[in-house]
Amino acid sequence: MDLLPSSEQEQIITMAMDFMATEMPLERIKNGQADAPSSERWEAMAELGWFGITVHQDLGGVGYGLAEEALLFRAAGRFLAPVSTLATSLAARLMVTCGAEELLSRCLKGEVKIALAVPETKIDNERGRLSGRFRIIDGRGADFILFLSQDQAALCDGSLLGGCDEKSCLDPSASLHIIELNGAHPDLVDRQVASDLYAIGMILVAALAVGTAEAICEMAVTHAKDREQFGRPIGVFQAIKHPCADMAMRNEAAFSQMCYAALALDSCHNDAVRQAAAARYLAGHAGLTNARANIQIHGALGMTDEFNAHLHLKRAHLLDVLLPVPKGALL
């Protein structure tokens, strides 16, 4: 039993951080918006093995486990990685289970970008067709849309968004469309894997949230050390220091639980879904709570559009609505 990253996993973390820092730094988000990743950049991520990190090597993937994938998304989460990276990685699994080999191989090459659907109410999927009102995250330039609930995993063509205007999104790093479906036909459906895929999705959302929660804590601590008032760094004051300590504690719990849940799910432990739900809850809560405290720690600066604190807050709210913990899943 060992719950800390191995040296090999540390390498994955470093590489993902380096990639994000050079290719997708937070500075990409300007004037309340960010461009969707270019196709070159998307292909570069695919080259790294990003979208198939857990796909078996025989199918062109890397063959790592969910823990490695979670560590990857946590690193990416620090830079508010596009939600489409998450949707694409999840959809790749669906392509595997549906035997959609050609699509999978295009996906692993970085030729398809996938958006994530957020149902406004419960997903209605009578006879495999989708109905209801959805918010589509990162639909701009997306080839497909992933619809995922505990009992339905479906991939629909991106043309569903045709004729639908893009809306501005609370999280400026994401793009938003709102669609109303009335019996849409998915290209791929798999109800059997839905609950597993949902649990994996909860862990990856948790990973993104842990990344953002950790980045926030570092931001707060740096400011607490640098900013001086009354002749001393504000980090001396307990009203600043203690919230930082609370952030670190929440992060430690969320990160440890993310690792534990990933391992549990990979080895099919019987309470794996509950562990995943716990990770999802703790990480989401850490992201939101840290983001709010961070703004207070920064004073007026924290409220500006020019400083990054608000980006993390808005990201935390976006993550909060992605693949939420189903009611009763923790009991």
Binding site: L3, L4, A254, S256, R274
Partner: peptide, 28 residues
């Protein structure tokens, strides 16, 4: 009540994972 109990369940899981991570850290 369900919400409070769910949060506790998640926290207890997190605490255990944290203890495991702590033990791993000390072991290393």
């Amino acid at each position: 009540i369900v919400q409070s109990l769910s949060v506790l369940r998640a926290q207890v899981a997190g605490l255990r994972a944290m203890a495991y991570a702590g033990v791993s850290r000390i072991a290393r």
